[in-house]
Write a protein that binds this DNA or RNA. Sequence first.
DNA 1: GTGAAAGCGCTAACAA
DNA 2: TTGTTAGCGCTTTCAC
Lengths: 343, 343
Amino acid sequence: MTKKTSLADIAKSLGVSKTLVSLVVNNKGDAHGISLETQERVREKVRELNYEPNALARGFRTGKTNTIGLIVSDISNRFFARIARNIEDYAWQNGYTVVICSTEENVTKEKQQIRLLRDKKIDGLIVSTSQDGSEFFDRLTEAGLPLVLIDRVFEGMKSPNVSVDNFGGGRIAARHLLTQGINKAALIGISPDHISTITDRMKGFESALLEENIEIPAEWKIRAPFEEIEVVIKENLQRFYQQGTMPEAIFTLNNNLTSTTLQILHKLSIRIPEEILLIGFDDVLYYGFTRPTISAIDQPVDKISKKAFDMLLDQINGKEIPEKLHSVILPVDILIRESSVKI
Amino acid sequence: MTKKTSLADIAKSLGVSKTLVSLVVNNKGDAHGISLETQERVREKVRELNYEPNALARGFRTGKTNTIGLIVSDISNRFFARIARNIEDYAWQNGYTVVICSTEENVTKEKQQIRLLRDKKIDGLIVSTSQDGSEFFDRLTEAGLPLVLIDRVFEGMKSPNVSVDNFGGGRIAARHLLTQGINKAALIGISPDHISTITDRMKGFESALLEENIEIPAEWKIRAPFEEIEVVIKENLQRFYQQGTMPEAIFTLNNNLTSTTLQILHKLSIRIPEEILLIGFDDVLYYGFTRPTISAIDQPVDKISKKAFDMLLDQINGKEIPEKLHSVILPVDILIRESSVKI
DNA sequence: GTGAAAGCGCTAACAA
DNA sequence: TTGTTAGCGCTTTCAC
């Protein structure tokens, strides 16, 4: 690989200073009153020598890399893949590239990744965290790092954050099931309990049922560890089946859980909606044309991404985000399909 | 944000040289025979002053960033999302972070992204390209950029590449349909024609049918532009339906096409497999428990990712990849489920 | 309108 | 076993 041409090369071969070349290359020529003729000469040479700026040197000098980090628990999860796609898109439109990290719900890994990204001087960070509290992020925000938390957030945290109305979503799901005459419903979520999204969805669901004096027995509130979703759900459903304690409906708290539950019900030959109703949090393309079609609480993925990116960009550009706008909570919709309607 | 501590700060406050600190920080202390005592003093100070290395300065100096780029046409597509997750995982295990770019099949954007990543001095690049030839990549490889193409590759290209046996996959699908007594089958792919994966799958399929003297009429070889998949498939299927020229089976050439076709057949109330058989390229979790379950040609996503990353790492580490191992082609499997079996 | 020079934080050759 | 020094490519201040 032959040596790359640098600013100095251009300058030398043109008999001008590096300053001049730098200004032209960065389109600051006009602002500094550099003659159009000179500018054209520089540009010409840039083309001729096939000059490509060293972004590393520039970033090193200016402290700005035009790179942002995106940290999620699982990039192959449809929800996060869509988030990633949207954010990548906005970022590109605004001259940024995106470094993506997938934590597999591992807090240590998450912290290491954040550390590394900071060392790499990313301009900002969007995180869906697996941590159980906001202190770590509060400190980052205090330290001046542009940061937005998405999806999973904490009460009273200092960092700007974007989430959806998980509690409300839970209520909507519950009320819909109530209209179907359900009063025995199970919840399937993931542990640990500090994952706010899951907990809020559960609470919302329970609160709506409680208004009708329906209480969910503990054995129907299932929380499976991330790595053991399948095993745990299977065990529980099988047990219900054998004991004859099958609920009339299940509310699954994210798309992975919905899929896995669907799969297991299929294996157990339990028919939806004839024998059990099902509604899940997170919509997935397939739900619209599987048999039966699957009801879901739909998150506004595009709005989450856009809002998060905008808030990040504002911070990067030094704009203050007013205290009261720190926490953005977006509404969710219900998509009622066949799986949750009694027939 | 207070000024960050640098190597120099540590060195000064300890009364030693920057070199010394640098060596200790990079764990080269022992190799250079720096006394354990001194090493401990340095580490102590590092902790005390909360020193965080500036990876940008280091990369600038060494030319190594421990970052690789991954460019795909759509990160929200399940296939690429899984690839991304796997590669991110291997990369992390090997001390690399991953910058992800999504091109939306836009060649100009793809080239700009590659340009930008090179400017940012990424150590290597893995690409699933939307381009129609290998010249662009041949030049990158000649220029010494560690590079691996995946998924979509070109005959005789110079860059190392990993793909699956698309032709063979097409043949397997065709032969399976033949066992079901099918002789009227349609193909649904995306355009443009230079997308090698799609074209090869079609060719394989056709070749197997041809051996039984079955030719596919042109109107059953559908290729829809990326942005108009839904419209085009719908138009065609509706036309077949109305004209009474519906094929007995459809082979969809990627998971998006399979999903969309499924969706449209659902809307048209055409039953699978009673009225038409369906098999798709790419397996998706849902296919195993939708009703009917969907047959698919399954790609070894994990092997593709691992192989591609290994080949990239070898190049980064300066290992020659023997000419004959430049093109890795992995076998595919068929998953026969309900959608492609006559009942 | 243009140029000289300093310096960002780090590493690697060479010296001692 | 440790230190000195040069310089990676760029931007920025200040000077002319």
